[in-house]
Nucleic acid binder design. Structure first.
Lengths: 351, 351
DNA sequence: TCAACCTGAGAGAGCGCTCTCTCATCCTGA
DNA sequence: TCAGGATGAGAGAGCGCTCTCTCAGGTTGA
């Protein structure tokens, strides 16, 4: 009685038979072609409804050579990446922009080497029109190269390690962010300025440190650099090491807000007041930065925007037919090989 | 010179021509059929390598009526779900088990109504062989029903709200977990036992409260129930309300570890010692539970196992041909409509 | 009145693959 | 020596769709 059990889904052909028209006409209706008579259209629509017809995407993809699907590949052994505000921002931006363009986003996790291979097969097999790649660590990640070799359009989130790769990417202006942080600490009169830098194998960390170093100029002291893992606890540990090295430090630039929060906790434990004794600048402007105590002065990066820009950059190269309306805030991407999104200093109370 | 630019990927046909065999033979080699001569096999393998051949998954899916892809649909408006240890456990389990079965997992986010529709189209269009659904809140979620109506195999993570749905699901034994927590608090001699329950619209929260209530029996006091959102800060707030209602409470069962951590923070702020003045039992056994201060007594649920079981349950119904070796810890799923995974009490110091 | 044009619908090829049939070839044993 | 099996490879249909080409029927202008 119920139409619930429908083991073999109806095809275009069956709809056509029921509506008494040709397959071509059904196809036109389903795809919204304007060259179809209203009466005929409604006959077809009825048949579609009655049968619960849903086009078979494999068949469509086969002939169109397009799937209207974007793969967001997260190449990162640790699932906890998802907890990272960076990732959730990117994901939010990517899904928003893709939705607007009528594209489906599928997220693929590449955690093991076996996954890596599976993901590569998936992407190369035409199951997606393009790949957005997020892999912060890397250096070793074979995915960008193999995707490129396969002629699959790729956009990377963040600056890729391998400079030789001629690949599209969207990054935040981490170097400038590092400069802004250093400049702020100098401007408020600090002199012994340390940094809890990011991991050495992540370009974001490298670039932030580079900006910090260059702005500090002669005041830069290599022994006042400790590396963390962008996590709160690693920020605490690094800060303890810094305090051991330089008990007189009066400022810390942490390359992520989580590390800045860790730094504040460690400083407090060591009896230092923030910002009175030690000023702290973070990076990211995560949600909790504003409500931290004290509210965190930080460098804001726009991860949601970054995700959106990644999609736009990809579409600009693969789908010039889609005329995306220009979004303010996102620099136009025609003919660019990469985009550098602006960052800004958000001054609160910690520095 | 470089083979990098390969805009139109080679087809079986081209491989066949190069190898001097028929399409059928190439197909056999690619799919590992045993009935192919070694010499021929290596000729084909060479051709595959030379051309960089990769089978077109759309074409294959079209004829096989199978994609070897599982969709993990996360139906949740807030992207922050990803930070939730529950989700990352499920994801880890799902990807692990799917990998073992040679299946690709794609994660789909359904955040808005538009997404919902897109996801539904995707799933119903044959782009995946089955759907694993995670949507904790819900009640309103149309996805389970529409998938079911479309004849798409679905397994839900957690007990679905809609009892009338004849649908497969894998849940943790939340009721028993609630009982275990209550029993522990009674066993250590506590008498004024409060609970920070989960949200009213999530079955996990409802079930944990139900177990707690039933085990407490006559000692259950409705006014000692405050609801949180499974987050740390909501646990703090709820605990403050509880302390206002019953300053003499000597035990709290928090329906998640994050809320338990929040409870401990609030208790400490209120000058209560844990466990001396107030014993606290959590739920989840998240990674940080063991290293909390004091280490958290909690009810362990096995989310990774849950993810694995979801895949197995789906495969048991859709792919009886795959003989999965039985995994200990996962109850066999033949003929079952749902699985209830055991939970256990982990006694540490907080209770 | 009829050629020239437009509009809307059908015919049919073919996307890249799998898989059933069919058949050629080689081996075995009476 | 030759029927009866194996074995391994090719032929060909067809999965469900799109899209070009063709054409019928109606409209227009000279």
């Amino acid at each position: 009685m119920s139409p619930s059990i429908r083991p073999n889904r109806p095809s275009l052909e069956e709809v056509a038979v029921l509506a008494g028209v040709s397959r071509a006409t059904v196809s036109r209706v389903v795809n919204g072609s304007p060259t179809v008579d209203a009466a005929m259209r409604s006959r077809v629509d009825d048949a579609v409804r009655v049968l619960g017809y849903q086009p078979n995407l494999s068949a469509r993809a086969l002939v169109r050579r397009r799937t209207d699907t974007l793969a967001l590949v997260v190449s990162e052994p640790d699932v906890r990446v998802f907890g990272d505000p960076f990732f959730s921002g990117i994901i939010r931006g990517v899904t928003a922009e893709a939705s607007a363009a009528g594209l489906q986003v599928v997220i693929l996790l590449a955690q093991s080497d076996a996954d890596l291979e599976r993901v590569e097969r998936y992407a190369r097999s035409g199951a997606a029109d393009g790949v957005l790649l997020i892999s912060e660590h890397a250096g070793l990640d074979p995915l960008p190269r193999s995707m490129l070799d396969a002629g699959m359009p790729v956009v990377i989130g963040g600056r890729p390690h391998d400079e030789s790769l001629d690949i599209l990417f969207v990054d935040n202006d981490n170097v400038h962010g590092g400069r802004l942080a250093a400049r702020r600490l100098l401007d408020i009169g600090r002199s012994t300025i340390a940094t809890v830098a990011g991991p050495r194998d992540m370009t974001a960390g490298i670039d932030r440190l580079e900006g910090f170093r260059s702005e500090l100029g002669g005041r830069y002291r290599p022994e006042l650099v400790e590396h963390g893992e962008f996590t709160q606890s690693s920020g605490e540990d690094a800060t303890e090491r810094l305090l051991a090295t330089a008990p007189d430090l009066d400022a810390i630039f942490a390359a992520s807000d989580l590390m800045a929060l860790g730094a504040i906790a460690a400083l407090r434990r060591a009896g230092r007041r923030v910002p009175h004794d030690v000023a702290v600048v973070g990076f990211d402007d995560i949600e909790t930065a504003a409500s931290a105590s004290p509210p965190l002065t930080t460098v804001r990066q726009q991860t949601v925007l970054q995700g959106r820009a990644m999609v736009r950059l990809l579409l600009a190269t693969t789908r010039p037919d889609l005329r995306l309306e220009p979004a303010d805030a996102i620099p136009p991407s025609e003919g660019r090989s990469h985009l550098l999104l602006p960052v800004e200093l958000v001054v609160r109370e910690s520095a």
